[in-house]
């Protein structure tokens, strides 16, 4: 579980987040949506310990984020950035890197590390391409490999920053199915999403960030009539047969 309280943060001397308070609960998928530059990714990076906090606090599983040392935090929170490198390594080697937070010196993998990585490959459905070079794979398969690496990290809190961008619909749905499986195992899953319909259909909770503040936090069904979509995105949401559509505002 991640609790963010009165958070103020930013980078390059610029404050992006202003007094953000929000909880990400165990066993739930929380989607963070918001217009470009609203502070969604900044919030996620703060929760992953990648950005400093100027005010407020973040509790990871009840303990202040600043109390965690590097590898201890990496054993509690895994983070998938928007852009991931494509090194000349195999999928299996990449996924094994997810065990780095558990490695001492010299960096030798234990039998348990190998088993956990194999499970991660299987969970994501890429065991059959485990020995292929990452560079030979499609964008969707590469994304899956990077996600498997975060699963191998075996953390209670899983953060995804725009994991579905540039992916085909097939991969988008597979990814959301995987997120549901993780939340079903009791993990805290937080994803920054661009795709509001995808967030609406697959989240237990939606957080709307606008101008560095939390404009909405609640069930997807509550979002439609909250008026937040209109003010944050400048479009009007329409519900039809359980599906969400949008039309431009006059």
């Amino acid at each position: 579980m991640i609790s963010v309280k009165n958070l103020r943060a930013g980078y390059g001397g610029r404050q992006i987040l202003n007094n953000v308070t929000v909880d990400f609960n165990d066993g739930e998928i929380t989607s963070i949506i918001g217009p470009n530059g609203s502070g969604k990714s900044t919030l996620l990076q703060c929760c992953a310990g990648l950005l400093g906090i100027s005010n407020g606090e973040i509790l990871i599983d009840g303990k202040g984020i600043t109390e965690y040392k590097g590898k201890a935090l990496a054993q509690s929170v895994s983070y998938l950035p928007q852009n991931n490198s494509v090194s000349a390594i195999t999928v299996r080697a990449l996924v094994m890197h997810g065990r780095f937070p558990y490695l001492g010196y010299p960096r030798r993998y234990s039998r348990e590390d190998i088993e956990i990585a194999e499970n991660a490959l299987e969970t994501v459905g890429i065991l059959d391409i485990a020995d292929k070079q990452l560079s030979e794979l499609s964008g969707g398969q590469q994304k899956k490999a990077h996600i498997a690496m975060r699963l191998a990290q075996n953390t209670n809190n899983v953060l995804f920053d725009e994991p579905t961008t540039f992916l085909d619909i097939k991969y988008k749905l597979e990814l959301m199915k995987l997120a549901k499986r993780l939340s079903g195992e009791g993990k805290t899953v937080v994803a920054v999403l661009h795709d509001i319909e995808l967030a609406f259909a697959n989240s237990d909770k939606i957080v709307v960030v606008n101008n560095g503040e939390v404009a909405f936090c609640g069930f997807p069904s509550e979002l439609v009539n909250s008026g937040v979509i209109e003010s944050a995105f400048g479009v009007e949401p329409i519900m039809s047969e359980g599906k969400l559509f949008f039309k431009p505002m006059n």
Partner: peptide, 17 residues
């Protein structure tokens, strides 16, 4: 080995501790 982690990008490397 740590260089391999670094090659994954600054954000990923930091998030791995």
């Amino acid at each position: 080995h740590d260089m391999d982690i670094l090659a994954l990008g600054d954000k990923t490397a930091k998030s791995l501790g």
